[in-house]
Design a protein around this nucleic acid. Structure first.
Lengths: 133, 133
DNA sequence: GTTGACCTTCCAGTGGGGGGAAGCCTTATG
DNA sequence: CATAAGGCTTCCCCCCACTGGAAGGTCAAC
């Protein structure tokens, strides 16, 4: 398989696949003309990577997961730990965004949004004094 | 004021303040020795920027807000629109993370996390077949 | 033989800074 | 007066995970 084929199969852009080779996540063969040649197992790996990335795992997280995936003697506890750490990162990110959202929503709500210049959003950004909300 | 003073006042690292000058968000003066000299208004702007960034506004968003802040003839509707667009971006991001979280939490839940190699997390990443959950 | 689709490598850029080097300026102290 | 400490300057590279594009090689079809 050439890169275009495996790109279609995995849903990843060819550029991304080259990048994954660069960082050592896949090691396709090379044919005599210099083209990358992907085996079934490479296509499989790339699909795996695509799904792990879609769940928000970092490249290094993907590398760890892939290593465990290929180690049939792994302990599922190791996989679970990686996933749980990632889950916590996601939770922290959601909490952070939720707090931003609350503050911003409150400000947006308080703003008339008309032709006049008075704007509690700007006032708050300028002052951020702690008053009653 | 030198950069260290205004860094303390605004809570921003000096590096960040230099970067903000680089991208044109602040224009401090220069004293004869080449040091940046910040006025009260610069310190004010930087504090404004710090708070806007803390709400997740991009540098370009900050630039727009700052421009409106300094335009006493602004219409609050313009500010509100920028804030609402940002709010929607935050909402999309939260939705995306929440979906990741749900999928991942389900997988983590299904994984025994013991010494055995069987792991639904890896199975799912490898297959992602659509079955009942 | 020539088009057009595919492939290759390499370089640069994204956002929002951070780390650190090399070198000036200022102030306090011995 | 010398020097040491700390603050300031510019400059360049690094982070992440790609993405875009240029310049050029390869292959199948017509």
């Amino acid at each position: 398989m050439n890169i275009g084929d495996v790109a279609k199969l995995s849903g990843l852009p060819a550029k991304t696949i080259r990048y994954y080779e660069d960082v050592g996540l896949v090691q396709p063969l090379r044919s005599t003309n210099g083209y990358r040649t992907f085996r079934e197992s490479d296509a499989h790996k790339l699909a795996f990577l695509g799904r792990a990335r879609a769940l928000g795992f970092s490249i290094e997280g993907c590398r760890s997961l892939l290593k465990l995936y290929e180690d049939t003697d792994r302990a599922s506890a190791e996989v679970k730990q990686i996933a749980e750490e990632h889950l916590q990162r996601i939770d922290r990110k959601i909490a952070e965004l939720t707090e931003m959202r609350a503050t911003l929503a409150h400000l947006v709500d308080a703003c008339n949004g008309d032709h006049r210049p008075d704007c509690p959003i700007l006032t708050d950004l300028a002052m951020a004094q702690e008053e009653d909300v």
